[in-house]
C-alpha cells in the first residue's frame, strides 16, 4: 500500500504519471513529494510508487 495524502491506496507499481492521470489532478498544477523529497515533473514517468511510500500530492489553483 502507498500512503497518499494520508490514505492508504493500492498504487504500488504505478508511476507518478500513471497515478496522476487516473485522478482529477492537473499535472502542471501539482506538486508531488515522495518520502519527503519533491519529485520534478520530468521524472513523473519514470518514478514508480513503492509499497510503504508516503506520498503527498498537492493541487494548486491560480485564482485570487
Amino acid at each position: 500500500m502507498v500512503l497518499i495524502n494520508g490514505t492508504a491506496e493500492n498504487a504500488a507499481g504505478m508511476t507518478v504519471e500513471e497515478y496522476i492521470s487516473e485522478t482529477d489532478y492537473n499535472k502542471s498544477r501539482v506538486a508531488v513529494e515522495i518520502n519527503g523529497e519533491i519529485i520534478s515533473k520530468a521524472l513523473y514517468t519514470q518514478t514508480v510508487l513503492n509499497d510503504g511510500d508516503t506520498v503527498e500530492i498537492v493541487g494548486f489553483v491560480g485564482g485570487g
Binding site: N26, S28, R29, V30, A31, I38, V58, F60, G62
Partner: peptide
C-alpha cells in the same frame, strides 16, 4: 513545488 508556470 511546481517547477514552471502552469499556463492552463
Amino acid at each position: 513545488l511546481l517547477g514552471s508556470v502552469p499556463h492552463d
